Simulated scan of single mutants.
Amino acid sequence: MNGLSTAAVYVIQTLGSLYLLIVLLRFVLQLVRADFYNPLSQFIVRATSPLLMPLRRVIPGFGGIDLASLVLAILVQLLLMIVTLALLGFGFGGNLLQLLVWSLIGVTSLFLKIFFFALIVSVILSWVAPGSHNPAAQLVHQICEPLLAPIRRFLPNLGGLDISPIFAFIALNLLDMLVIRNLAAMTHMPQILSPFM
Rank of each mutant, 00 (worst) to 15 (best):
I114G: 14
Q42M: 06
A184V: 06
P39F: 05
G93E: 13
M186T: 08
L79F: 12
L97P: 02
Q191L: 08
L155Y: 03
L110A: 08
G63P: 07
V45P: 00
S132T: 07
I120W: 04
N38D: 10
S194Q: 04
A7T: 14
G61M: 07
H133L: 10
M197S: 11
I166C: 08
L183C: 12
L25M: 14
L175W: 06
I120H: 14
Y19P: 04
V23M: 00
G160P: 13
L40W: 14
T108M: 14
V121P: 06
L97Q: 08
R56K: 15
L85Q: 15
M186D: 09
A68H: 14
I120R: 08
L4W: 12
N157I: 01
N173E: 11
G3C: 05
N134V: 06
L119N: 10
R26K: 00
L80W: 10
L15S: 02
L79T: 15
G106R: 00
P54E: 14
Y37I: 03
G89E: 13
L193W: 08
G89S: 13
P54F: 12
D162G: 10
R181S: 11
L25H: 08
L99N: 04
F62Q: 03
I114D: 09
L119H: 08
L172P: 12
N182T: 12
F115D: 02
D66S: 05
K113M: 11
I180T: 03
M1Q: 13
Q30N: 15
V23Y: 07
I105A: 10
R153H: 02
G61H: 06
N173G: 01
F92M: 06
D35L: 11
S126G: 01
I44Q: 13
L100C: 06
L147M: 13
I170Q: 02
F196S: 06
L119K: 03
L148P: 08
S164T: 12
N95E: 14
V140S: 01
L161F: 15
V123R: 04
S126Q: 03
L31F: 15
T108F: 15
S194K: 00
L87V: 10
G159W: 00
L139A: 06
A73V: 15
I65R: 07
G63S: 05
Q42H: 07
T14H: 13
V45A: 12
P195Y: 04
N182M: 00
D162H: 01
R46W: 02
V83N: 10
G16K: 05
I65W: 12
T14C: 02
A149M: 09
T14A: 12
I180E: 01
I59L: 05
Q98N: 11
A185H: 11
A73F: 11
L79G: 14
I143P: 00
V179F: 15
Q77L: 05
L78S: 10
R46Y: 07
L20T: 10
P195M: 14
R153I: 05
T187C: 00
A137Y: 02
D66W: 03
Y10K: 04
T84G: 05
F169T: 04
L24V: 08
P165M: 05
T48F: 08
D162V: 02
W127K: 05
L112F: 09
G61V: 01
I124D: 09
F115K: 00
V28A: 13
A34W: 04
S103L: 03
I151L: 15
